[in-house]
Amino acid sequence: MARQTPALATLLPPGLQTALRGRRLIVGHRIRGVSLGRHRSRRAGDGQEFLEHRAYTPGDDLRRIDWRAVARHDRLVLRRDHSEDQLTLALCIDRTAGVEEAPGQHSRETYVRALAAALALMTVGQGDQLAFSVHNGVDTSFSQLRPRAGAPALAALSRALHQPLGPEPCPWLSWAGRARMLLPRRSLVVVFSDFLDPIPGRPAGDRSGDIEVLGALSSLRARGHTVVLVQSLLADELAFPWTGRRLLEVRAPGGRRPPVEGPGMHLRAGYLQALGDHLEWFRRTCEQLGLRRVAAVTSRPIEETLLSLLAVCAGQVVTSSPEAVG
């Protein structure tokens, strides 16, 4: 008998559950859904927002004649409104194993799962569709990239988030290709990852791998998707608090890179400089490619990060920079 998967809501910390009450997931652009929903659509329909006037042609619904306009133009004019469609939220979650938990802080895994679960619950709760693809370090599920609505979608996501983890890196390029094919146009795509070493085989100073991944993700925009990158960062990764003479052996998750030894006090300065340069480059590149980015620093209260994420999804500009290095 298979073990029953806990409900997705159990992944939410109590404070986050409170913060979710009364909030909605809003996107800042017009979507193009397949069925009616609550989000403004680019096509004409039965919405509340005025789209255009056009001349009446026989056969049109007489209820849509705009009588005020008829009075002004002295001919029959039909009012057309924007439709309101269902949103499709696509979650791409990189759950590669191997990150350490810091005492008193969320681990990257719990932090990401909580944010993803919150978005999924909000989406399904407001009647939108959910699609997801979770990379658990062993394989990547592409089957769930077909949008679904309701409790089955949440149950499937919960199962995927509770699967054991492995060390294999996320196949970003193939994932992006599948997503382009399977996701409906103008979806909201939220990608969770640390984006620190997306293609480990490359030399440390070589950013070609980063450029390939970001290029693949930005290619989703060609189909009208809004792509939001949630970069999960551990507080220790940003601060490198090992400043003593104690010898450290720094390993990459899954042994993707050879370990490096050295006293923390000797390693720290170079590390912080390189990391700071990379994050700055990553931020500027995202801006250039039209990718929206949210830093999810695990030392930051998760409620604040979720609010920032919702604001970014809604097209607002978030100026706070929680990922200060050093």
Partner: peptide
């Protein structure tokens, strides 16, 4: 010989080895 403290960092990529003194130990 000092046993190094294992540290797993996703940002290992940005850690550069410093000198050779450690291998002497």
């Amino acid at each position: 010989r000092e046993r190094p403290r294992p540290l797993q960092l996703a940002s290992r990529r940005f850690v550069s080895p410093q000198g050779e003194v450690l291998t002497h130990r």
